[in-house]
Write a protein that binds this DNA or RNA. Structure first.
Lengths: 351, 351
DNA sequence: ATGGCCCATCATAGCGCTACGATGATCCGC
DNA sequence: GCGGATCATCGTAGCGCTATGATGGGCCAT
């Protein structure tokens, strides 16, 4: 009846009991306690060399692979960094994510990736799932988030880095640059080339707030100069080369004597460049063109493209640095939590 | 002494005891057992509507967020899919990863991303860490992996999808296309345009085996045709527009009467195109140019680029489909485990 | 009525690891 | 030579959840 139930938990009660190699097995083989193995894995220096060697040997003979899920549960924090970008197809973010991944990998951190597609609600959903992984840090793009997103993150106590934008007060830490200032640099540059009928062409600016800020920074600075006109033209679709061609045509129609264009993205600039070529418009003689992003082709196209480089690479590096110091218990304070990576205008042949 | 130690575990023994909202709290508020809450979360239909409503209410009033780490540990499998690509900066993989992420997100799966940088050892290290997350599936790029990688994955029992290449026997499942055939298509196309002095220009082919296979497929088919010459030229660095320019110049030097070029990547093709323009070579009259990838700019450049589209998007979708059916217990068998997404040659103005 | 079935719900035993405090062993200074 | 500090190591209680089999109430066929 009940008597034997304590001996042999009736039926096939026991759980799957995988024959997975556990830390316990390693400990047994190395003739130390599991705690020592765990300690060795986390801080090898805290274990005596003799024990360390024994453990290392045991690990390799057994082919032990630590279970990070169990570790994450026990430590209440997993070795995962959740990164949320609008889209990884965008070369800017691809570059940042790539760098970030490499930097974090050196410390054994994994990257959990999510795409918000420029939607605050989607971002919120992603943050919610991200937090259920008890991540070591969360990285978001930009400073515009839903109230709920901010609340969730703040309540979680997890280090948060917002990247690619500076300006408003970040949730926790931020790495990026000022987009209005990028627009202003573009405008000043065109002004310095004596351009007087200007336009800023961009795509998806109803959702991409950063592009919109570049546009308004551009317009503001331009209008403060001696100009004939300055328009901002938006293409509701994605920022592609084709969109650039479309936008150039619209600009040509709307703006008389157009002689200076800033683009929200080098892809758009390239499209505009191609369209100029098609229409027999000479760049930079007839129209000067400034891009943004300094993408792969920008130095090689004809004419080579004057552009503003934001350095997605540097952003990735700095984000990684902030995350790593937070994890190592040196959580940056005050001004150290905001890093301005700036931007550089690279003058080439298109202006 | 010892008497009270059972009451109040001496000292501040107890663990952090976060006031995190747990499933237990939800259960209490909804007046059901934790198991029922868990059941409701996993299969809502298995719980009575009344209880379900009560639980839903409790979840929302408490703002409960399930702890996926704990869930993963208990279930011995986490809701994570590990994706390893050579580099996310490559637009091909960015597209696939993006699609894959979106498709998987609809089923509550997260993407853990890693970059192998075309290194088998790095890939192996990534696979190792990936497996310590007990992922729901692992996605690799290509069919070339270290023996150890194959062994690890096979032993793990986790569904594995290899993507972007077909040909050899996959570890488990594969979605992609034949790279030699892509090369062959390019060669046939140039042959059909009466080109007789051909070259295949590519970058990083010592590491990028897939590009190398496109090259050899090209060479083989070309040499079977009526041609004067066919060379393969490699640039050891990354596949960039600049590399394309460099490669064009080398081709021009090496090959007399060069009149047809296939490129391992549209970026390279674009670079070649720019360089032709610079040198006063007319495309396609003097030299016909075929690319690979159908990237953003390929339809818009001047002349528009004849290229071969592999559809990274479709690959992503199919990979997601295989993963989802594996997870739902309908693990594909036999031929259903290999999916050929093919390739399409898109003829434009450059040939 | 009565037995057997089914369905919704529950109690409990882990999943594999880490953090905490405890335990000896070793070492130092006076 | 002894008390206290230092160091490596250990025992164990959870971390929050899921899977498993048990439980009990309602329902149907007899």
């Amino acid at each position: 009846m009940d008597a034997d139930s304590s001996l042999q938990p009736r039926g096939t009660r026991k759980r799957r009991k995988m024959q997975r190699v556990t830390m316990m097995d390693v400990a047994k083989l190395a003739a130390v306690s599991p705690s020592t193995v765990s300690l060795y894995l986390r801080k090898p220096a805290a274990v005596s060399p003799a024990a360390g060697q024994e453990i290392a040997r045991a690990i390799s003979t057994l082919g032990y692979v630590p279970n990070l899920v169990a570790g994450g549960l026990a430590a209440a924090s997993s070795k995962v960094v959740s990164i949320i970008v609008p889209s990884i197809r965008n070369a800017f973010f691809a570059e940042t994510v790539s760098t970030l991944q490499s930097e974090l990998a050196t410390e054994g951190l994994q990257v959990l990736l999510g795409h918000s597609e420029y939607g605050e609600d989607q971002e919120e959903a992603l943050v919610r799932t991200a937090l259920s992984w008890a991540p070591a840090a969360v990285v978001l793009t930009g400073l515009s988030h839903s109230t709920e997103t901010r609340k969730l993150l703040q309540a979680s106590g997890v280090p948060v880095v917002e990247m690619w934008e500076l300006g408003a007060r970040p949730i926790d830490m931020a790495v990026g640059f000022s987009h209005p200032q990028v627009g202003a640099s573009a405008a000043r540059h065109l002004l310095s080339k004596n351009r007087r009928s200007l336009t800023f062409i961009g795509a998806r600016m109803q959702e991409d707030h950063r592009a919109a800020k570049r546009a308004s920074g551009f317009a503001e600075t331009a209008r403060a100069g001696e100009i004939l006109s300055c328009e901002v033209i938006n293409h509701p679709g994605a920022a592609t080369v084709e969109a650039g061609s479309l936008l150039l045509n619209r600009a040509l129609q709307q703006i008389p004597k157009l002689d200076g264009i800033a683009c929200s993205n080098d892809l758009i600039a390239l499209g505009a460049l191609f369209e100029c070529q098609r229409q027999g418009i000479t760049v930079p003689d007839d129209i000067a063109l400034v891009g943004f992003g300094d993408l792969d082709f920008s130095a090689s196209c004809i004419p080579s493209l004057t552009t503003i480089r934001p350095s997605g690479d540097l952003i990735g590096k700095e984000v990684a640095r902030l995350i790593l110091s937070s994890i190592h218990g040196e959580r940056p304070e005050g001004d150290a939590r905001i890093i301005d990576t700036g931007h550089v205008l690279i003058e080439r042949r298109s202006t």
